[in-house]
Amino acid sequence: MNLPETRQHHDPYDQLLLNKFAGKVPISFLASYVYFTKGGIVQKLIHQIKYKGQKEAARELASWYGYQLKTECTLVKDADLLVGVPLHRSRLNQRGYNQADWIAEGLAEALDIPARTDILVRKRFNSSQTRKNRMERWENVETVFAVTNPQEVVGKHIIVVDDVLTTGSTIEACAAELLKAGCRTVGVLTIAATHR
C-alpha cells in the first residue's frame, strides 16, 4: 500500500504544525505518519479503523511508524509514557475500543515505551468534532479531560497519541491537563494530519 508519508519525524519542529498550538500550550514536538486528505486512501483507512472495527489496522500502522521513529530519528528517545486521547465511557461502550489506545499500543511495541490507558480520562461526553471549526472544537473540549493519576506524570516526558490531527484542539486540551498535573514536557504523535 502506497501511503502519503509526511516524513515529519525528520523535522518535528515544523512551524506550520506547531503554530496550531502557538501561545496556547507548549508542545515539545509534533509528528504525524501520513497526510490526511478528504476522499483519499488515508481517510478511508481511518474510517475503517474508527467505525468498522479495524483496530488491528491501527496497531499495525502505528507499529510501522514506530519502527521508522526508532530507526530514523532520536525524537522519542527520552519519552517516559505514551497516552492515547481517551474516549468517553459511553462512546467506548458503543465502539468497543479506543483507536488511540490501539495506536499507542502499536507504537509502544515498536518503541519499547510503555503505553498507559489509566492516566487521562474524558470526564464528559461531547458531540463529534467532525463538522466544527477551530473555535467550536476548542469550546467543545476545553473542560473535557482530567488526569487521574497526577503522581504518575510528574516530571515525565509524555507523548499524546491520536489518530488524526486537524485543528489540534483535542490534543491541546489533553496536553494542558498533563502539564497542569506536573509533567515535564508533552510531545504529540498521530497517524495522520491534515495539510493545514
Rank of each mutant, 00 (worst) to 15 (best):
A58F: 07
Q94C: 14
E136L: 11
A31R: 06
A57N: 11
F21V: 00
K50I: 13
L189A: 01
R184P: 02
V144P: 10
R124Y: 10
Q94H: 14
N98L: 10
I46M: 10
K50D: 10
G39S: 04
V34G: 01
K52W: 12
P150F: 15
V154S: 09
E136G: 08
Q8N: 11
F29P: 03
I49W: 07
R134P: 10
S28T: 10
N149A: 07
I27K: 00
V34A: 01
I171T: 06
I27C: 03
K38D: 12
D162F: 00
S169V: 07
T194Y: 04
R122L: 06
G23A: 04
T117F: 01
R131N: 14
A62E: 06
L92V: 08
M1C: 11
I119V: 08
A181Y: 05
T190M: 03
G155V: 03
R124K: 07
I113M: 02
I27F: 02
H10C: 12
G40S: 07
N98F: 13
Q68A: 12
C174R: 06
A104N: 11
Q151P: 12
V188G: 00
D14K: 06
A192P: 01
T6G: 00
I49H: 05
H9V: 04
Y33I: 00
A173V: 03
P114N: 00
R91G: 15
S32K: 01
N126R: 12
T167F: 09
H88Q: 03
V25Y: 09
L45C: 11
F125K: 12
R184Q: 11
A176L: 15
R134L: 09
S169T: 07
A22L: 14
L18D: 02
K52G: 09
D163T: 00
F29K: 08
V76Q: 03
Q43Y: 03
V25L: 05
A100M: 02
G66C: 11
T166I: 14
A175H: 00
G23T: 02
F36C: 01
S127E: 12
L16Q: 11
S127L: 15
G84C: 08
R91D: 07
L16I: 15
R116W: 03
T185Q: 14
F29D: 03
A176S: 11
I27T: 07
E142V: 10
S169E: 13
G96E: 14
G182T: 04
P12K: 04
T117V: 05
R89K: 14
K132Q: 11
L75E: 08
Y51F: 11
I191N: 00
C183R: 02
V188H: 00
A173S: 08
N126C: 05
S32G: 03
E177D: 01
S63Q: 10
D78V: 09
N149V: 14
T117M: 02
A110R: 01
Q15W: 15
L30H: 05
R91Q: 15
L61S: 05
V144E: 07
V153G: 04
D118Q: 08
A57C: 08
G53I: 12
L92G: 06
S63N: 14
H10P: 09
I158S: 09
L165A: 01
V153A: 01
Q129M: 09
K24P: 05
E177Q: 07
Y97A: 06
M135G: 07
K123T: 12
L120Y: 00
